[in-house]
Computed example of a mutant assay.
Amino acid sequence: MKAFFDARQWKHAPQHFMANGTLLPNPEEPRRIEILTDAAEAAGCRFEMPDDAGLGPIAALHTAEYITFLRNIYTRWRRIDGAGAEVIPNIHPANRTDGYPKSAVGQAGWHQADTACPIAEHTFEAAYWSAQSAIAGADHLLAGGDMAYALSRPPGHHAFADLAGGFCFFNNAGIAAERLRAAGLRPAIVDVDVHHGNGTQGIFYERGDVLTVSIHADPARFYPFFWGHAQERGAGAGLGTNLNLPLARGTGDDDYLGTLATALERCDSFGADVIVVALGLDASIDDPFQGLAVTQEGFTRIGAALAATGRKLLFLQEGGYVSETLGANLTHVLTGATGG
Rank of each mutant, 00 (worst) to 15 (best):
R46D: 05
R46C: 10
E48L: 06
E48H: 11
M49A: 15
P50G: 12
D51K: 13
D52W: 13
D52A: 11
D52Q: 12
G54R: 11
G54E: 10
G54Y: 10
G56I: 05
G56H: 14
G56R: 14
P57W: 07
P57H: 06
A60V: 09
A60T: 04
A60I: 07
H62L: 07
T63H: 15
T63Y: 14
E65G: 09
Y66E: 05
T68I: 01
L70E: 01
R71S: 12
I73R: 06
Y74G: 00
R76M: 10
W77F: 04
R79M: 12
D81P: 00
D81H: 08
G82D: 00
G82E: 03
A83G: 06
P89A: 00
P89C: 02
N90V: 12
N90P: 00
H92Y: 15
P93F: 12
P93A: 09
N95T: 13
N95C: 15
N95E: 13
N95K: 11
N95D: 15
R96A: 13
R96E: 12
T97E: 11
D98K: 06
D98L: 08
D98Q: 15
K102Y: 10
S103A: 10
V105Y: 01
V105D: 01
G109S: 11
A113Y: 14
T115L: 14
A116T: 07
A116P: 03
C117D: 01
P118S: 13
P118Y: 12
A120Y: 06
H122D: 15
H122K: 13
T123H: 05
E125S: 14
E125H: 09
A127Y: 05
A127R: 02
A127F: 05
Y128W: 13
Y128C: 04
W129S: 02
W129F: 13
W129G: 01
W129V: 00
S130V: 08
S130H: 07
S133G: 14
A134S: 15
A134V: 02
I135V: 15
A136F: 12
A136H: 06
G137M: 08
G137H: 11
A138V: 02
A138Q: 05
D139C: 11
H140D: 09
H140T: 08
L141P: 04
L142V: 05
A143N: 14
G144E: 04
G144P: 03
A148S: 13
S152D: 00
R153M: 09
P154K: 02
P154V: 09
P155M: 11
G156W: 13
H157E: 06
F160P: 01
A161E: 11
D162I: 07
L163P: 00
L163A: 04
A164T: 13
A164K: 01
G165L: 05
G165S: 05
G166T: 02
G166F: 08
F170S: 00
